[in-house]
Design a protein around this nucleic acid. Structure first.
Lengths: 344, 344
DNA sequence: CTGAAAGCGCTTACAG
DNA sequence: CTGAAAGCGCTTACAG
């Protein structure tokens, strides 16, 4: 029952007949150590099964090697692909990805950011526009925003063209002949809600249509809120013939509720979503939607935070805003309005 | 432009007129320090804005304060709720949750586990039955399995009653009057595939039905493989009237493909899924499925790993297997077979 | 090209 | 109840 302890750098040094400093150099800058020495060290590393102890290295280098992604809700599948893009980009650069939830758990929100600031992570990718990150000069961590952002201040961020996507959705419906177009929005204060709503209004105005207040439905991006909106749509005395939903999840819930009542999509109402989550291609009818490149969002966010970490605090570049394009995906949930509807 | 450095324990000690040791004790065992001293220290902590530096503490305590969850695919929304259950349980105990992907990225699989073993994490929750964790005595990390598991060895694990769920699904279909029942399975080597298939066969035998080879469809748990199975079903000269799918995602893909061809669910085929992911309640028709308590899986897995970390290596308890029950959720995707079908 | 030494910021026997 | 000291395992000026 001999328990073999983990080898330390000292064990390797002894085994190779060199100093710990040399072993360290072989790992970090192999070029500056003599070939023979290097070979001996590598051999000793092999024999001892040595692996660097990260806590020790981190303490010495005053870094942690971890980045945290803070999302409003880990359970939301929208983030899965994004997180996978982040992890894939961070890994090769020697960073681990930690994941946190800003809305639940201990020390949620801003308080969490302060706790994380001391030897837990080196940087933050923040997906929640309602959390205010402590300023850099107040001891705050390097932070980038993704998807959502905060008004005003100068954090690097990656966003998609939310207003543009909303315009595409409406223009598509208008081109099909719809003039009675409603909108199912996200939670009121959310920046994405605001931008998509603005795009909706712009495109409506451009088509000389004025949004009807009773056709502006409120949701919160969730399936359930979409279903509730569907029930409200069913109860309307005078219904829009088309609806632009600010998220695919809401569109799914809406369609489910409408179909459950025996109405048809797009027969009775055309529906456009936002996000292009994988599932909506398999619905009946498949959902017309605005595609966000989720994996790319993750990749870009990871690059931004890596750039922040690399830059000297003194000559940090001005915060970059990466804007990713979106794309209209045409499927069968949209069609020209029925004659009866147009004449209603 | 005064940059105020982070306060260290020494700064607090100086400020309070005590030693660093005392400050440390105030944080870890307030009871053993005199009330007056304690108050002075707390005051100094407040004034300096001191926060413990985790890398240093970790190095000293020979722990990292992090647990990693290794999943086969971060992008799979099935894991979202589970991860959120883990994070919620780990947080209050002072552990962070790291998330890794066993199938992609650098050092995937087993190699990853060895890298993680040195000051990166204290323990592993492994969701991939195909990764072999290094044994504890070979310097392997404390590990628990969740959802999937490995044949034979003695790792603690949390599982659901996969075979029981499959039996419930088939019994339900039999009770509705189906006798022509097919199965859409997961990837062949997967333990979940094997268990659910066994449950399927048991229940079929109990109903004096023999599974027809041409009704045993193969998938890999993904939407796309479900859609492919739907196309195969459509091409069958003699079709089953009901199908038990080993995952909800496959059931969604299957239903989408079948409906796209103008066939009806449950009119032409009844479908049962497995998992009860949130979305399937909003499909048309809503999916009858086997519910897994995903959040609870996460909570139990977190408890198991915490127990492992707490136990002295000497008197570690025998590995516990937590078996969570599943539940049949009745919805509208299943119905008695049509007369024409029964007589086919 | 290599080594001796200092030190990252904590915690914890040990002694009093 | 409290302090002085050692040490966790590394890396990195500094000196040669």
């Amino acid at each position: 029952m001999t328990i073999r302890m983990r080898a330390t750098i000292q064990d390797v040094a002894r085994e190779a007949g060199v100093s710990a400093a040399t072993v360290s150099r072989v790992m970090s800058a192999p070029g500056i150590v003599a070939p023979a020495t290097r070979a001996a060290v590598l051999d000793a590393i092999e024999r001892t099964g040595y692996r660097v102890h990260h806590s020790a290295r981190n303490l010495r280098q005053q870094r942690t090697g971890s980045i945290v992604a803070l999302v409003p809700n880990i359970s939301n599948p929208f983030f899965s692909n994004i997180l996978s893009g982040i992890a894939a980009t961070l890994g090769p650069e020697g960073y681990n990805l930690l994941i946190g939830d800003t809305r639940s758990g201990p020390g949620a929100g801003r308080d969490m950011l302060r706790t994380l600031g001391n030897g837990v992570v080196d940087g933050v990718i923040l997906f929640d526009g309602e959390v205010e990150p402590p300023a850099r000069r107040a001891g705050g961590l390097p932070t980038v925003m993704a998807c959502e952002w905060r008004p005003g201040p100068d954090l690097p961020s990656v966003r998609v063209d939310n207003a543009g996507g909303a315009r595409m959705a409406v223009e598509h419906l208008v081109a099909l002949g719809h003039r009675r177009i409603g909108h199912l929005a996200g939670p009121p204060k959310n920046v994405l809600t605001v931008e998509r709503l603005a795009g909706f209004r712009d495109a409506m105005a451009a088509a000389h249509l004025s949004p009807r207040p009773d056709w502006m439905l409120a949701g919160d991006f969730t399936l359930e809120s979409g279903a509730a909106a569907g029930r409200r749509w069913l109860a309307l005395p005078d219904r829009p013939t088309a609806l632009f939903c600010a998220s695919d999840e809401m569109a799914c819930g809406f369609i489910g509720a409408v179909q459950a009542a025996g109405m048809g999509v797009p027969r009775d109402v055309s529906v456009v979503g936002f996000d292009n989550i994988e599932l909506v291609a398999h619905l009946t009818p498949p959902l017309t939607t605005i595609r966000q490149q989720r994996n790319q969002i993750g990749i870009e966010a990871a690059r931004l935070i890596l750039a922040e970490l690399l830059a000297e605090p003194s000559d940090r570049p001005p915060p970059r805003q990466v804007l990713l394009p979106v794309e209209l995906i045409l499927r069968a949930s949209t069609a020209p309005p029925a004659i009866a509807q147009v004449c209603a």
